[in-house]
Amino acid sequence: MTPFHLEVRNVRKSFGRKVLFDAVSFDVRLGESFAVTGKNGSGKSTLMKIICGVLTPNGGSVRYVVNDKEIPLSHVAPHIGLVSPYLNMYEEFTGEENLRLFAKIRGIGVRQDDIHGLLQRFGIFEHRNKEARFYSSGMKQRLKYCAALLHRPALLFLDEPTANLDDIGIAVVREVMREQRQRAALVFATNESEDLSFADRVLDLSRLKIG
């Protein structure tokens, strides 16, 4: 794995006049695992969106440095994966079509074997030719994991990693989190105390919160 560095500096976000957080700073490097916790509405999901570059902060900076070269936020797609309740699949496409679409729009080639391997691992191989609108919420969550892992991202972002999953699903996710931490880097937002054992460092947004 090539060395990389995620640098978050003084990130500030407010909706209207309501300040959600002010001056969030942290670093994540190869081999690290970083957790974000905080009450409901403390801004965990918002922070994850900002770091992934899908939401613009009101201040501060998010930088990705891969191999000592800074990558603009608009081009980090091939390096990151995100599982989030706010990330929706295309309902009119099948599970497998969604995965291919994700890879293509990210601008990377994938092999059929890799796609099928992941679908098998997450137990939705049999449903691969079903349109995503027929998936249950747990199956959708599993499909999101496949989409996030397909390109073997340097950084994996998980917002509520075990949401909607059954025990088998949770076990697979735990395994994925362990692997990702060893292979590359992991950032996740959670309120489950068990998840926190996967983290090297924890940021509590409730304590940080101002105003």
Partner: peptide, 16 residues
């Protein structure tokens, strides 16, 4: 409406 704009933003740049 379908909440896929966030997905698309994650996958590629605005210009694309």
């Amino acid at each position: 409406e379908r909440g896929t704009s966030l997905t698309l933003r994650l996958l590629t740049s605005a210009t694309n």
